[in-house]
């Protein structure tokens, strides 16, 4: 089955099984997202991809498109809610962009620019989160984790190593690595793993290359994420 649905008032075709986000994307319409990645099944946790269908909020990365759906996405209401979700993510962790080596390549930061987030609005949680420098090639700075679980999924489903998992729950949820010591250095993690190269923010960092590309010349410094994402459709989230 294939058909059409209306996306912000414009008809968009879809193939059977395609989600709203995938179909919109294929037709050249960008929907902001963080936990979705073209190479993985939908995760549905960040909720940035929320759209309204027939007045109801749904995750566009997870819901299959259906004939005749009326989807609202790029509206002040949806963008306002997305901005608020970003603000939540910013106050939950410790995101000091000017001193972060991911700055300019970070999707969270890029989304904040995209959605014109000018302040954090809410009070910062300032959680105490550790840094793990035990691995020879990789540094983990958990202060910036947004729990998209891309590293978890990549390590489990592609690298076949299950180096990462989540533990605890609620606001205390956090990542652990696959070692009794709790240290990345004691796992079989390697810098070539997909999991080492998929983090959308600045948690999983390669050592000794931090500022090879100067800030100001990085991916999202020059071009907004909505453009990068659509330009490199096959490969970039």
């Amino acid at each position: 089955m294939s058909g059409h649905f209306m996306f912000d008032g414009r008809p968009v075709p879809f193939e059977a099984g395609q989600t709203i986000l995938e179909a919109a994307r294929a037709a050249g319409h960008y929907i902001p997202h963080l936990c979705w990645h073209p190479d993985f099944p939908p995760h549905g946790s960040c909720k940035l991809c929320m759209v309204k269908v027939g007045g109801r909020h749904v995750s566009s990365c997870a819901l299959e498109a259906k004939e005749g759906m009326e989807v609202e996405s790029n509206t002040p209401e949806m963008n306002g809610e997305r901005r608020a979700l970003l603000q939540m993510l910013f106050v939950e962790g410790n995101h000091f962009c000017p001193s972060c080596e991911k700055s300019g390549n970070c999707q969270l930061q890029a989304q904040a620019y995209e959605l014109e987030m000018t302040s954090a609005r809410f009070d910062h949680f300032f959680p105490v989160r550790p840094v793990d420098a035990s691995h020879p090639d990789i540094l983990l700075d958990f202060n910036r984790c947004i729990f998209c679980e891309l590293c978890v999924r990549a390590s489990r489903d592609v690298d076949g190593k299950s180096v990462f998992a989540l533990t605890n729950r609620g606001i205390h949820k956090h990542l652990v690595v696959n070692a009794e010591s709790g240290q990345l250095g004691d796992t079989d993690f390697s810098a070539d793993d997909l999991a080492a190269n998929i983090c959308p923010v600045g948690v999983i960092l390669h050592k000794r290359v931090g500022f090879e590309v100067p800030i100001g010349e990085r991916t999202y410094d020059e071009v907004p994420i909505s453009v990068v994402s659509m330009r490199d459709k096959g490969s970039k989230p």
């Binding site: 946790s45 993510l89 106050v91 729990f147 949820k173």
Partner: peptide
């Protein structure tokens, strides 16, 4: 459970 952004952070806020 902490899975989704709005509930994990929103309830704490």
């Amino acid at each position: 459970c902490g899975f989704c952004t709005p509930c994990r952070i929103g309830t704490s806020l």
